[in-house]
Design a binder for these strands. Sequence first.
RNA 1: GGACAGGUGGGUGAGUUGGCUUAAACCACAUCCCUGCUAAGGAUGCGUAGGAGUAAUCCUACCGAGAGUUCGAAUCUCUCCCUGUCCGCCA
Length: 412
Amino acid sequence: MLDIKLLQNDFDVICEKLRKKKVDEETLSTLKTISLELKTEKKVLEELQAEQNVKSKLFGVYAKEGKDINELKAELSQNKTKVIELNSTVKELEDKLSQIANTIPNIPDDSVPEGKSEDDNVELDLILTPPAFDFTPKEHWDLDNGWLDFERGVKIAKSRFTALRGDGAKLNRALINYMLDFNTKRGFSEVSVPFIANRETLTGTGQLPKFEDDLFKIEGEDLFLIPTAEVPVTNLFRDEIISANELPIKMTCYSECFRKEAGSAGRDTRGMIRQHQFSKVELVSITKPEQSEEVFNEMVDCASDLLTSLGLAHRKVMLCGGDLGFSAAKTIDLEVWFPGQDRYREISSISNTMDFQSRRAKIRYKDGKKNRLTHTLNGSSLAVGRTLIAIMENYQNEDGTIRIPEVLKSYM
RNA sequence: GGACAGGUGGGUGAGUUGGCUUAAACCACAUCCCUGCUAAGGAUGCGUAGGAGUAAUCCUACCGAGAGUUCGAAUCUCUCCCUGUCCGCCA
């Protein structure tokens, strides 16, 4: 959530920065007005409550001493009416405030380039060169080796679900294990969490209330399938005050991810690029503010080195303001080379949300006597499904067979 | 799913005839003092959030969540959530 105090004190600066994320000034101005109104109303309310408390106590004393209490009682009743009235005003304002504030995205970091869409993202680095083929490499859905069973996946659920078979299924599992081991060696401790999360959890990381349409909801319950392990793993520390010497906390987690892909009808309908369910190994860190930049770079390196170890050519891309996700202040995507498609496609996305999620989820740490908000970071180690098909396309032979990358052989 | 018992600061745990409770006490933790060596003792501080003030400090809210009764609720009423135990079911 946006820091309301910042909005009150540096309105113009915040407006300017949020322009990158297409938040109009009017909304922010409304928010500021409400917040200031709330502040003054609350003050009056508190004064009334203080008066009420003092007099109520007096009432008790008078009653015990047998003094006349009728006048005092009348006064208290009258005051009480005012308190109730003002209280509901304050509550209304608070509701309105959080309603608006919850839908305002994070402020982009100063290092984020201007831009409207992914076309304006900035390439930072190219790692490894795409493999050369002496035949025309196929797209993964044309590699008919029995690994990917699209028809039966659809039969079980619906479109955008795929079944894996034989070595395809095995490779998927091998990749998960390999990634977790790789990340653990880099200092990320493994966690395993529920794949279903409640409303509070999803609100903490920013998926709710704005993006409910993108989530699979459990019928009859206020529960959702997680769209990424970022959600449960970050929320592990929701409503907690962490002692400073425990930070940074660096975690890695395998999960299945479930996304409705609302609004992407017609995109990537073939193959396994865009699925309603996919495996992913995630990195999540919770840090002191001054640590987050360093940990962010560690996470980017971790994912990039993982791709390198698999021999997959990729590039690092800095997302522009327009392409930045709701909670992110800064994001670097890793895009892997797909020879069949003859282009780079996103396979990992690492974000620093600064204190945005921490403020929503109330994740704090003790800094001496004071409690401060932590920074939270998340990023795909790699999306497993996309890694699988990237390996298929990059390691294909002319006869349609697929070589297994060296580092994975012991996992197969 | 059924029955019963519960949810109180980091932990244990009092407080439930509504009002000197300012949420006790103990443990843990922090700082200091005394002592002096695989230790022990003492003092002080020690929940969260918001607000006022240069500051000491003060005010407000919060005892699972929400609503209600009342001048006044941790305490009484209702709804919901969660936990424990037993039963049923089950990988």
